[in-house]
Design a protein around this nucleic acid. Structure first.
Lengths: 136, 136
DNA sequence: TAATACCCTATAGATTTAATAGAGTATGCA
DNA sequence: TGCATACTCTATTAAATCTATAGGGTATTA
């Protein structure tokens, strides 16, 4: 299942990408428009800022805004930050590889084999989809 | 993440598929060979039996065995039973569809759009992979 | 008839997710 | 300067899910 965090994060990103100008948008406005708990969204937007997707401005007239062009934002990067590793098991992860403690041999492991294919097919989707694609 | 239940279930299925004859294999033997808690595996095998993948025989010389040919067992069916819906959100699920309460319009929802692609690519993998493929 | 091995329900412990609370800090404007 | 605004950050709680275990029950075979 997709976590609420990821779902809310994606919705916030698409909301920001749909803005006409680059003016900061307040958390409250996004939370309202997308039916998200404002406090929860706060922590999500914070993590998106820390990972370089969003910029923020404090004080009156402040808010969050996209740093890059939506077409430049790949889903691989977004999903890794919000949802975590794209692989369903650590033993097929590109960025978070870890050997299974119980599995004696990856080469003959059926689970490994299957999950490798799943990872590849998901990666292809995420690599070929940008934030701009989600709006169109 | 792939749940342990699914991982163990898949390992048990591949173990059974690798047997030379169709003689029942005891839970204890599978648990031992694949490093799985025997009691936990019990409930997993039970659910695989109830969903038509396995047969069982009680008493001395009893155990579990595959009902169908490994080549006939698609991963779509296995994953649905062990892991649950293949879709990451209910609003793109073929078998467990449910409308998002917060989303006003699926047609314009970016999350929906993305998850639809993910579902399709995963389905293609699972449809094109049988239990027999995991052994080879 | 006794040993074997699956059957079934309930429950407990651990982990993760989702949400909330509340105080802190920087900014803009009058 | 002073004040309202709005992001920043840490901690905590509540709910849900996952993983594993316990323990007695039932059918089968030798």
């Amino acid at each position: 299942m997709l976590s609420k965090k990821t779902k809310y994060g994606l919705k916030a990103l698409t909301f920001l990408a749909q803005q006409k100008d680059k003016a900061p948008v307040q958390i409250a406005e996004i939370a309202n428009a997308e039916n998200i708990s404002q406090k929860f969204l706060e922590t999500i937007l914070l993590s998106l800022r820390k990972t370089g997707f969003l910029g923020s401005k404090k004080g009156k007239g402040g808010g969050y805004y996209l740093i890059k062009d939506p077409a430049e934002i790949q889903m691989t990067a977004v999903m890794r930050v919000l949802e975590g590793p794209i692989s369903m098991v650590p033993c097929v992860s590109l960025n978070f590889y870890e050997k299974c403690s119980d599995c004696p041999d990856e080469a003959t492991c059926g689970v490994h084999k299957l999950m490798l294919q799943v990872r590849d097919s998901n990666l292809e989707v995420y690599r070929n989809t940008s934030l701009a694609d989600l709006i169109a």
